[in-house]
């Protein structure tokens, strides 16, 4: 996003990869535990209750959703909202499209970032600093303001309602490049020079030495990229009009239009579960990488 943001975060490193486990100085007293727990529980409930409500509602029948007499738990757990979502819209297609766009897009983006960062750190070529600044400045350009010209360009190349039309425009990655450049710069030059003397080419050095030793940083970039590709909305919304090419967030908009009125809430909750749950599961297991990546760059493209 911004030069300073990144510079600052790298210097001050708000959240390090080793996460914020504070060293405990003494055993907490009972009163501290109670006093400390109350706010913690309140905070967790604030986050969890809306999501829990989503999950529970997605299993309720219409009669339990359109009622003034709400109950937390569904009386009859029902999959009708899920089957309805798949019936009124090609939800299977949405899901597969999202998986495809995310996997292909994120893979290419990470590969591009790795290679660019390697070149910026270890390869001698002219105007390197100028190019690095150009990448940095690109971080400051909000993707939203580029929507219209990119639409005109991609539509002009018959990219409407195509996978490449969805994926390609966001492939150029300044965020990943910047984060990995920082990581690569911390590697000892001597290690790579020794390999160079032994006759290892750039690609060999990159994949046998640099990538394995900076795996945590690459994981961070990969996870942040995956999550942002999965959630991406405005570009796929504009570039797809054919439901068969829509990703989940765009498909949900379609579902919302088709299911307007309170009767559609159950189906919409089912749709929301399908788009939210995968990210929540990934986050639950790998949160320390994702939090580190997002708070370091505080940008997702």
């Amino acid at each position: 996003m911004s030069l300073l943001t990144l510079k600052r975060s790298v210097e001050a490193s708000p959240v390090s990869l080793s996460t914020g486990a504070t060293p405990r100085r003494r055993r907490p007293r009972l009163s501290t535990v109670l006093g400390g727990y109350l706010p913690l529980v309140a905070i967790v409930l604030l986050v969890a209750l809306p999501l829990l409500w989503m999950v529970l509602s997605s299993f309720k029948q219409v009669s339990e959703i359109i009622t003034l007499n709400l109950h937390a738990l569904p009386r009859h757990w029902s999959l009708v909202n899920y089957t309805e979502a798949f019936r009124t819209a090609p939800f299977g297609r949405f899901f597969l499209n999202s998986v495809l766009v995310t996997v292909v897009g994120a893979t290419l983006k990470v590969l591009l970032a790795i290679h660019t960062a390697y070149a910026l750190v270890f390869v001698r070529f002219p105007a390197k600093n100028v190019i690095f600044v150009a990448v940095l400045v690109a971080l400051m350009v909000p993707p939203q303001v580029a929507i219209l010209p990119n639409y005109v360009l991609v539509a002009g190349m018959n990219g409407l309602n195509t996978y490449w039309g969805i994926i390609v425009p966001s492939l150029g990655t300044a965020f990943g490049t910047f984060l990995l450049r920082q990581a690569f710069r911390s590697l000892p030059m001597s290690m790579l020079e020794a390999a160079e003397v032994d006759g290892a080419g750039h690609l060999a050095r990159l994949w046998r030495m640099v990538v394995p030793t900076t795996a945590p940083s690459i994981t961070t970039v990969a996870l942040v990229t995956i999550v942002s590709e999965w959630n991406e909305y405005i570009w796929p919304l504009i570039i797809t009009t054919d439901p068969n090419l829509m990703t989940l967030p765009v498909g949900l908009t379609l579902l919302q239009n088709n299911e307007s009125g309170p009767a559609g809430y159950g189906v919409m909750m089912a749709g929301a579960v399908i788009v939210i749950l995968p990210v929540l599961v990934v986050f639950a297991f790998l949160q320390r990488y994702i939090v580190a990546g997002l708070t370091a760059g505080s940008v997702s493209n």
Binding site: R25, I43, V44, Y233, L248, P249, Y265, A272, V279, V291
Partner: peptide
């Protein structure tokens, strides 16, 4: 320094990574 702080920390961060579309629908309801 109460135990469980790390879980709460991750929990409170979670909505930040979720789809704005999904979150929007949940709150509309």
């Amino acid at each position: 320094n109460v135990p469980g702080t790390n879980v709460a920390r991750a929990g409170v961060f979670a909505p930040y990574v979720l789809s704005g579309v999904g979150v929007g629908l949940v709150w509309l309801f």
